[in-house]
Design a protein around this nucleic acid. Structure first.
Length: 427
DNA sequence: CTATAACTCTCAA
DNA sequence: CTAACGTTGAGAGTTATAG
C-alpha cells in the first residue's frame, strides 16, 4: 500500500505577510485578491473575528478596520518565493514531491513508514518552521483524497495531534465515527454544486459518500466522483504527478482598477496581457495556434448595460512571437469592441498549444522563424534583467494609468526586490 | 450516423 | 458624496457540426 502525505501551509498568504513584519504579530490580517477586491486569506485572528472567505472587501472594510483588521494587497512574488523555500525543505523528506498549488504539496512517503508517520509528520513540521518560519499541517493517507482529508482533520484538530494526522492508522468504528462527523463538502472534488446534490439524496457526510454505491455515483454524477468514492475507501486512483505537464492553454486576464470606455485603453490592456501570455508560452517552449480575446462589463454593476464577448482568432501559423500574438489579439479586440460600455475586465487566452519543435511552417513564407526566436530570446533576456516591460512592443504603453489594478496596501518585496530588503535589515 | 469540435459546467487554490 | 466583487487551469459531459 502506498502512503501519501499532504503538506499544507496554514493561512498561507497571511502567514507570509507576518513572516517579515513583526508589527503584524498577533494582529488580525487579511490578504485581498487582485484589485483589492475580495478577501482571499485570513490570519487566525481574522478568522476568529468572523471574517468570511471571499467576501468583497468594500462590504466589510469599515467594520473590519474598526476591529483592527489590517488588509494587505496580494504580493504574489513574495508568496511564490516562500512557497519555493517550503518545497525545497519537503524535497528533503521525499524524493517524490508533487507541488499541487502555491501552498500545498503531496509527498509519496511509502518508503518512510518504518520511521513512524506521526513522527515523520512532526519532523516535517518542525523543519519547515525552523528553516522557513512557516507553520504547516501534515496529513497522511493511503490515497491522495484521504491524505487531503487527513490534513483537514489536522488543521481542525479533529484527529491526530499538533498539526499532524495519520489516517492510515485509523480503521473500523473509529474511522467511521471520524468520517461521519465531516460534511461531505469537505472532500476534495466535492464543491458547492455536488454537495448540494448529494445532500438531497441523503449523502451528508464523508462516511455516507464512502459507503455510497459507486455505480450509482458514476451514473448520477461522473467517473470523477466515482474515483473519489474509491479513494475514500483507501484505493489509490490518483497517482502522484511529479513533473507538471505543459499547459494546454495560457490565460492572462485582469479586472481594471476603474472602468474603461475607449478602445485605446482596452487595446493597451489586451496588448499587455498578450505580451505576458507570450512570455509564459515561451517559458514552456510552446507555440500557440490561436488567440482568444475577451472583454466584459461588470456583472455586479446591475444598472449598467451589460456586454460580454470573446472571439477565437486562429493564427495562420502557430507562433510564440509577441509581435504576432499582440497583432492578432488587437485585431480580435477591434472586431468585438462596442463603444458605450463601461468595461471592467479584459483577457487574452492562448490555445492550441504545441511544442515549438512541432511547428508547422507556412509553405510560402519559410525561414523567418529563426530571426523571430532570436529576437524573442533577446527580449526575454532584457526583461528578465531589467524588469518586466523594459523592452516591449509599441502597442503596450509605458504606463497603464487608465486601467491598472488597485493595490493600495502592497507589502514590500522582502525577498524579491532590493528595495524591499533594507526594511528587513533595519530591524 | 459517427467522429470531432465547440461549448458548458464544475472544481480547485 | 458614491461606488466599489479574483485568476488560471483542468477535465468531463453535452451539444452542434461536418463528412
Amino acid at each position: 500500500m502506498s502512503v501519501f502525505a499532504l503538506v499544507d501551509a496554514n493561512n498561507f498568504y497571511a502567514s507570509c505577510e507576518k513572516l517579515f513584519d513583526p508589527k503584524l504579530a498577533g494582529v488580525p490580517v487579511v490578504v485581498l485578491s487582485n484589485n483589492d477586491g475580495c478577501v482571499v486569506a485570513r490570519s487566525a485572528e481574522s478568522k476568529a473575528l468572523g471574517v468570511k472567505m471571499g467576501v468583497p472587501w468594500f462590504k466589510i472594510k469599515m467594520e473590519a478596520e474598526r476591529a483592527g483588521i489590517v488588509a494587505l494587497s496580494s504580493n504574489y512574488a513574495l508568496y511564490a518565493d516562500i512557497s519555493d523555500r517550503i518545497t525545497e525543505v519537503l524535497r528533503g523528506f521525499s524524493p517524490d514531491v508533487e507541488v499541487y498549488s502555491i501552498d500545498e504539496s503531496f509527498l509519496d512517503v511509502t518508503g518512510f513508514r518504518h520511521l513512524g508517520l506521526e513522527a515523520y509528520g512532526q519532523a516535517i513540521r518542525g523543519r519547515v518552521a525552523e528553516w522557513v518560519g512557516m507553520a504547516v499541517c501534515v496529513g497522511f493517507g493511503p490515497s491522495k483524497t484521504l491524505a487531503k482529508l487527513a490534513n483537514h482533520c489536522a488543521k481542525k484538530g479533529l484527529a491526530g495531534r499538533d498539526g499532524v494526522c495519520d489516517l492510515t492508522a485509523l480503521e473500523g468504528p473509529a474511522m467511521d465515527a471520524l468520517l461521519g462527523g465531516i460534511p461531505v463538502g469537505e472532500v476534495w472534488g466535492v464543491g458547492r454544486r455536488i454537495s448540494a446534490g448529494l445532500e438531497a439524496i441523503g449523502i451528508n457526510n464523508v462516511l455516507d459518500l464512502r459507503d455510497a454505491d459507486a455505480e450509482t455515483i458514476r451514473s448520477r454524477y461522473s467517473v470523477v466522483l466515482e474515483r473519489t468514492v474509491r479513494e475514500l475507501r483507501g484505493v489509490s486512483c490518483l497517482a502522484l504527478e511529479e513533473l507538471a505537464a505543459d499547459k494546454r492553454q495560457i490565460m492572462v486576464s485582469r479586472s481594471f482598477g476603474r472602468k474603461v470606455q475607449d478602445l485605446a485603453a482596452l487595446a493597451d490592456a489586451v496588448a499587455t496581457h498578450a505580451t505576458r501570455a507570450a512570455e509564459k508560452l515561451r517559458g514552456q517552449g510552446s507555440i500557440a495556434g490561436a488567440v482568444v480575446v475577451e472583454i466584459r462589463t461588470s456583472p455586479f454593476s446591475e444598472r449598467e448595460p451589460q456586454y460580454q464577448r470573446s472571439i477565437n482568432v486562429p493564427l495562420p501559423e502557430a507562433s510564440a512571437d509577441t509581435r504576432t500574438l499582440v497583432r492578432w489579439a488587437i485585431r480580435g479586440l477591434k472586431s468585438i469592441y462596442r463603444p458605450g460600455y463601461a468595461y471592467a475586465k479584459a483577457g487574452v487566452m492562448l490555445s492550441e498549444l504545441r511544442p515549438r519543435t512541432a511547428a508547422q511552417g507556412d509553405l510560402f513564407s519559410a525561414g523567418g522563424s529563426f530571426r523571430s526566436e532570436a529576437l524573442m530570446a533577446t527580449m526575454d533576456a532584457v526583461n528578465s534583467r531589467w524588469g518586466r516591460g523594459s523592452l516591449r512592443t509599441a502597442a503596450v504603453r509605458s504606463d497603464h494609468l487608465e486601467w491598472e489594478m488597485a493595490r493600495g496596501s502592497l507589502s514590500p518585496g522582502y525577498t524579491t526586490d532590493w528595495e524591499g530588503l533594507p526594511v528587513v535589515l533595519a530591524r
